[in-house]
Design a protein around this nucleic acid. Sequence first.
DNA 1: GAGAATTTTCAACACCGTGTCGATTCCGTG
DNA 2: CACGGAATCGACACGGTGTTGAAAATTCTC
Lengths: 211, 211
Amino acid sequence: MPAIKSRRAPTKGDQREQALLDAARAVFRDKSISQVTIDELAGAAGIARSGFYFYFESKQALLAALVDQRLAEADLEMAEWLASDGLDRDALRRGLTAGLARWKADGRWLREAFITPDPGPEVKHVRDRLVDEGCSLFSKRIERDARAGRTVAGPPALIAKMAVHLRSITFADAYAHPSQYDEDELLDTLTDAILRLVYGDAPDPARFTSP
Amino acid sequence: MPAIKSRRAPTKGDQREQALLDAARAVFRDKSISQVTIDELAGAAGIARSGFYFYFESKQALLAALVDQRLAEADLEMAEWLASDGLDRDALRRGLTAGLARWKADGRWLREAFITPDPGPEVKHVRDRLVDEGCSLFSKRIERDARAGRTVAGPPALIAKMAVHLRSITFADAYAHPSQYDEDELLDTLTDAILRLVYGDAPDPARFTSP
DNA sequence: GAGAATTTTCAACACCGTGTCGATTCCGTG
DNA sequence: CACGGAATCGACACGGTGTTGAAAATTCTC
């Protein structure tokens, strides 16, 4: 059961569908999605504009398919840390490093897919499923730690959502303004920030009374 | 020196410009910006479509003006906390509460203006200025605390950026999926999350060694 | 490997929103 | 009241979208 929409046979024309997806991924690296015309996409895959509609209902539908394909990769990045226990700072950092690399490569359309407010129903559907899933996995890890008697800093579901969003928005901003960031510093800071966000102790108010 | 673009006199037709802005704010509450047609905007302000172009060069230009107008309000929300010292949890929470209220009212176009990856050059310009300014103020507060000898959790500029982004993305998501959030819980958690992010101690690894 | 069935391709068309131009009307000022 | 700039609008050209129907290519069946 393919996730998006099942056109019929396992025939040969499906190569074209994949060609279209590959071409799109390449084209989306250079231009924002709204600037890319369907004519361009079709051309890059070697077919006429009207031929595009045989494979996808719209640009958004194609993007949704693209997002769906990348699902597996994204899951894998965080799998190690999500499966581990305790802080496991190193595993977390490794996962974030992989994520940053992915964003450096495909940031343009990842941004459009994941943080655009209203990316059309098709994309919205897939991406909501994806982030819900991500948050839920994160949340489960937190709950696991909480059950093991470790201090956790708030309602797991909410904290998880914030952590996941913090990660996306940080990567997105790092993609958008690369000059403002030093990569290693960014990864270190983000790793610690997430750990502090999830497991950190509240800062001691006493330390902050006036000098 | 008006920020956006100075058309001439303080004449009477400027009322129309404001009417256009007000109408736009109302219309943008119901539909996403790309769904709103210029014809609709003009109609809502009582002029013909082509008349719109006398006042603004495009939909994006109008949105930029809208953002620019809201600048002052947003600044005020956080002013109290930004001016204070130490944790001042209550002031922070008050600021966030005001922010959430603003997002509840104008979330639709705030989202489009502030978190859309590529909102056209006009909007991009104004909004980048705004978030840079916000981050910088935040950063200054952190540096001030650091100078006063308080523990701070990382490079002030980076931490500030993360905190500011965490706030936006949380409000944006709360607007997009209101049913998933309890408002009070959200505000409490966000307040603590920011404080932990900025001033929190790293979680003690010892506490996390296996049971 | 020929013919039928079906998949794939594409040119032509209708549609919609944008932005521009120039003619026309409005309105305050000398 | 007449002059000049401000404001308004209809008509046009343009570009991207999505649809349709017929032709070409591919696959299937015997």
